[in-house]
């Protein structure tokens, strides 16, 4: 069986073909090595980096944009959003500062993606 998918690692959007019957599985259509990793992860455990924003208290912006420091299993995305909604950021941050450690209990960190100062 062959499975088709579009690689989302970069804007090129290579159409990948995964030959599931070959051992190990054969991946074609990728214009760079990232396509192989993407296809394998998509088959076994699809993950996405989650970006959103968290509410702040006494900071210059109402919201601070954040991202997970690594991809989150796709099926955990809605649980991750529930957790993000509970957070209130109260201290000034720079891009890269940790907003929540061990997010989702999976060792994933939530990090700020821009500077947000005090009021």
């Amino acid at each position: 069986m062959t499975k088709k998918m579009v690689c989302i690692e970069c804007p090129k959007g290579c159409v990948l073909e995964v030959d599931m019957d070959a051992k190990p599985v054969k991946i074609t259509g990728n214009k760079c090595p990232k396509g192989i990793g993407y296809a394998l992860s998509e088959m076994e455990d699809p993950r996405r980096v989650l970006t959103s924003s968290v509410l702040t208290e006494s900071l210059e912006l109402k919201l601070a944009p954040v991202k997970t420091d690594r991809p989150v299993p796709k099926k955990e995305l809605s649980r991750a959003m529930e957790e993000i909604k509970k957070i209130r950021l109260k201290r000034a941050v720079s891009a890269g500062d940790i907003v929540a450690e061990n997010f989702l209990g999976m060792g994933i960190k939530l990090v700020a993606t821009r500077e947000v100062g005090l009021v």
Partner: peptide
């Protein structure tokens, strides 16, 4: 643009919009 997908060409890494601006 708080989502990712910026910077792969210019910085050779994937950034969010605010990070690219930063």
């Amino acid at each position: 643009c708080v989502h990712t997908g910026f910077g792969l060409e210019y910085f050779k890494e994937v950034l969010t919009g605010p990070e690219y601006a930063d």
